[in-house]
């Protein structure tokens, strides 16, 4: 792995249980700053579980237990004094299905600011515009900012969700199969957007789409379940290496299986 890059997120011996069921087992990896890291693997291998551990979203579910350490900028986000609200502002998330709130486009993007208690109308407007521009959506919606977000197309909704996440100025963006509900054209737009965003943000993306991982990501982590259905990290490295000369035969099997 490229040693010159600064490490943004570092995961150490992460175990996550749903009740008694061990969903991911002993994951250790480092995610570099300002890059795109893809997490791939078959369904049920714990990709989402892993991703949701990075902003402690798993805790919204009852009966989830997390062991190990996840550090962002060297601080363990699981230490008891961590402010969940601050953490989640710092680590944004985009979901598999676009989930804009049933409010106007403007209010969707402004939401994160409003809950921070920001009342300054001008500042809110500025941030909304900037976020929409960064999410490559501004031109399409600038004339209908106060229309319901639910009137947008699926791809637009997803970019709106990205803009909404950007508005709170996170440093990390987590995306769980952000394009799986979209058509190919909308998918390509999201991918372009990701490439632009990585100049400023650290992006971790879960995807089922191997070509997508190969196209957009700099690093790839391959997960697989063991005989107890617990997800494990099989291989992690530069995307080009993983796809051209995987070290582990299981990685090769998975990749070629999908390609072939």
């Amino acid at each position: 792995m490229n040693n010159k890059l600064k490490i943004k997120i570092s995961v150490r011996n992460l175990n996550i249980y749903y009740g008694k069921f061990l969903a991911i087992k002993n994951i250790t990896l480092d995610i570099p700053e300002r890059s795109i890291t893809a997490v791939i693997g078959p369904s049920g291998c714990g990709k989402s579980t892993f991703l949701r551990a990075l902003n402690r979203m798993n805790e919204l579910l009852p009966d989830v237990k997390t062991e190990g350490e996840v550090s962002i900028d060297g601080r363990n986000i699981y230490s008891p004094d961590v402010d969940l609200v601050k953490l989640r502002r710092n680590v944004g998330m985009v979901f598999q299905r676009p989930n804009p709130f049933p409010k106007s486009i403007f209010e969707n993007v402004a939401f994160g600011l409003r809950i921070q208690g920001i009342r300054d109308r001008e500042r809110i407007e500025e941030t909304v515009e900037l976020s929409l521009r960064r999410a490559a959506l501004w031109d399409e919606v600038k004339d209908k900012l106060y229309k319901s977000a639910l009137e947008l197309s699926g791809g637009q909704q997803q970019r709106l969700c990205i803009a909404r996440a950007l508005a709170v100025q996170p440093q990390v963006i987590l995306m769980d199969e952000p394009a799986s509900a979209l058509d190919p054209i909308a998918t390509l737009r999201i991918e372009d957007l990701m490439r632009e965003l990585k100049e400023e943000y650290t992006i971790v993306i879960v995807t089922h789409n191997m070509q997508q991982a190969a196209r957009v990501s700099d690093f790839t982590a391959f997960f697989l379940t063991d005989e107890d259905r617990a997800g494990m990290l099989i291989e992690y490295g530069n995307t080009s290496d993983i796809f051209t000369m995987p070290k582990d035969p299981r990685t090769e099997g998975y990749i070629t299986g999908r390609y072939g």
Partner: peptide
């Protein structure tokens, strides 16, 4: 979830 993920 979207709300929580935005730090609400």
């Amino acid at each position: 979830e979207a709300g929580f993920a935005l730090g609400a």
